[in-house]
Amino acid sequence: MRRHLSVFIALATIVSSSVACSSAPTQAIMSSTSSSSAAPTSEFTRIHHATINNGWAMSFLPGTDFLAITQRTGGLQLLNRTTGELRAISGTPEVYSQGQAGMHDIIPGPTFESDGTVYLSWVRAHAQGAQGVVGRAQLDTATGALNNLEIIWGQDPAAGSGHFSLRLLIAQNYLFVTSGDRQLGAPAQDINSNLGGVLRLSLDGQAAPGNPWNNERWTMGNRNILGIAAAENGDIWISEMGPQGGDELNKIVGGDNYGWPKTSMGSNYDGSDIPDHRSDDGFHAPATYWVPSISPGNLLIYTGALFDAFSHSALIGGLSGQRLVQVTLEEPATELNQWPMNARIRALAQAPDGALWVLEDGESGNLWELRP
């Protein structure tokens, strides 16, 4: 029997016209505590900045006023958050953009402020179907051009167009890459495959020394990881899409197996059962999970000072759930609050001033700035 840790609470969205911020529409959103813990309740406003076609991921570029935004269909956009100018970045690679495939993530490298280095992930056509790759380049924000793009890592290719994951994180001087199971399941339990887990690489794309299986793998038994973030204490967390129900928040530990497809708190799409996590099954159980699904498309660990209520917690945007969810960073984790967004939430980013930026999914996804 499936256990329900998270239950959707219908919340009211209050639209306000009393907040002045240029000529952009502004809305006030109220949160509601979804657990009995003494969690703070927050109110914030959201300010509209742009409409993005098929936006997928975004990152603020340190030392600049720019937000880099990927578009699944192949584009990269550069938004000047001060002037509001939005322009396309040139020099992008050719992508395979069927289904969930396309341009995926972009993050600044640790030397970005001195040399403009960025890391990108995308999907390219392959003789065996499609292949996720990671590249490194220099982004010139003055000209809006990618230069010296090189591919430094490749995912095991497979047929189909789903579960690439391809989220990127640089932490502890390593490049962490999330690699989905490509809707195949079994590779997530194969230590000789780089599908279905978190990978730990050097910054040039090679398997990092000291990895538990002496290859690229850092974890195994993961399904489709669309969020990865580092906490201030160094812990790394992921948000993971389950099957029918069973979406997960996990703290990753090198060498651990998270169970997919042998165990899950969800069920197969045909209705057949998957064994639940048990304390004695040898797998790392989720910190928390959602039944029914919220479809976590992203993960952000808030480290700013603008929202006291968000401090030291995770924020997850729901695609099917169409809401923003706040969760504690502990095992087990507690859901503190949720806010209805009335749209599928594809990406989250924290601005240098602590504002929270939210990108909606789809062909005309709104880009919002959230402030108290």
Rank of each mutant, 00 (worst) to 15 (best):
W260N: 01
P275E: 10
D273R: 11
A285Y: 03
D270G: 12
H277V: 15
D256S: 05
D280K: 08
N257P: 10
W260H: 02
F283M: 15
G282R: 07
S267I: 12
D276K: 13
R278K: 14
D270R: 05
D270E: 09
P261K: 10
G282A: 10
P275Q: 09
D281R: 07
N268Y: 08
D273Q: 14
D280R: 10
G271C: 13
M265E: 14
Y258S: 05
D273L: 15
T263I: 14
P275G: 09
Y258H: 09
P261W: 06
D281T: 12
Y269F: 12
G255M: 00
D270K: 07
N257C: 02
A285W: 02
G266K: 01
R278E: 11
G259P: 00
S279N: 08
D281A: 08
W260G: 02
P275V: 07
S279R: 10
F283N: 08
S267E: 11
D280H: 10
G266L: 03
G259D: 01
G282S: 09
G266D: 02
D281G: 10
K262C: 05
H277M: 14
K262F: 03
D276V: 13
S267N: 08
Y269M: 06
S267Y: 02
R278G: 10
D281S: 08
M265I: 01
K262H: 05
G254A: 08
Y269R: 03
T263G: 05
Y269D: 02
D276C: 13
M265P: 04
K262W: 04
I274V: 10
P275D: 09
G282T: 05
S272Y: 05
S264N: 02
G271P: 13
F283D: 08
N268M: 12
S267T: 11
G255W: 00
G266P: 03
H277Y: 15
R278L: 15
A285G: 11
S264A: 04
R278T: 15
D280A: 13
K262G: 05
R278P: 11
Y258R: 07
S267P: 03
H277D: 15
G282I: 05
D256E: 05
D280W: 11
S264P: 02
D273A: 15
H284L: 07
G259F: 00
